[in-house]
């Protein structure tokens, strides 16, 4: 299968040696949305989260993000946005796995500056899963490289999928699911969102969701 049947007409390619970045309407949409969100994150102030915590009084507990924490988290969030935007238009399998791993690390980084123990616990659990899943992620990509001799999606999409490629793709899927913390693993990740700082936690959710969407496209390209 080629790019055209999957994501709409090819709008253009950016040849950088072997790594060909390509853009079709589907990739462009994901890429533009991610960059738009990243721009919004860069200019946003975090909200003050109100928690009805004090049950004996009429006051609400207000949780704020302090200045130092704010700068650090904003920096990591912007990098996370750019990394996932890169993963949307890359035409190289290994680049995609690298961006994926980077997003996984940054997701932990974004919440690691907060001081709520439950959130840190959940980030730790997620971190363990992400680390374990980096093995199948890179392993899958290297198996595909070893059995086909290429990592370029343009070439891979024209090839017939051998059993070894299917095996590599399944390993990669496991890796992606774990790294982005979806379906079977989301329970560890959901708690991470209880901290204030909505501009920063949105990129955690956004990056993993979009990488899953993109991963499906890539796996379809490789397998069919």
């Amino acid at each position: 299968m080629d790019f055209v049947t999957l994501g709409g007409n090819l709008l253009g390619t950016i040849p950088l040696g072997d790594i060909v970045l390509y853009v079709n309407p589907f990739n462009l949409f994901l890429f533009a949305v991610l960059l738009g969100f990243t721009a919004l994150i860069a200019v946003s102030k975090p909200e003050t989260q109100v928690e009805a915590a004090k049950f004996n009084t009429l006051d609400n507990a207000q949780v704020k993000v302090d200045e130092k924490e704010f700068r650090q988290r904003r920096f990591l969030s912007v990098i996370c946005g750019i990394a996932s935007a890169g993963a949307m238009i890359t035409g190289d399998l290994f680049n995609f796995t690298l961006f994926m791993a980077l997003v996984g690390i940054l997701n932990i980084g974004i919440v690691s500056a907060v001081k709520q123990t439950s959130v840190l616990n959940s980030a730790f659990n997620y971190g363990l899963i992400a680390m374990m899943c980096s093995l199948p992620l890179f392993g899958g990509a290297s198996i595909i490289l070893a059995s086909t001799g290429t990592l370029s999606l343009a070439v891979l999409s024209q090839m017939h999928a051998s059993p070894m490629v299917v095996f590599g793709a399944i390993l990669m899927l496991i890796g992606i699911l774990g790294e982005s913390g979806v379906a079977p693993f989301f329970a560890s990740k959901a708690e991470m969102f209880r901290t204030p700082g909505s501009p920063f936690i949105v990129i955690i959710h956004l990056s993993s969701l979009f990488i899953i969407v993109r991963a499906v496209e890539i796996l379809l390209l490789v397998l069919w």
Binding site: L6, F26, F29
Partner: peptide, 12 residues
């Protein structure tokens, strides 16, 4: 156009 774009829309 592509059905995948609508999937992306739904993800957003």
């Amino acid at each position: 156009d592509s059905l995948l774009i609508l999937f992306g829309v739904y993800a957003v």
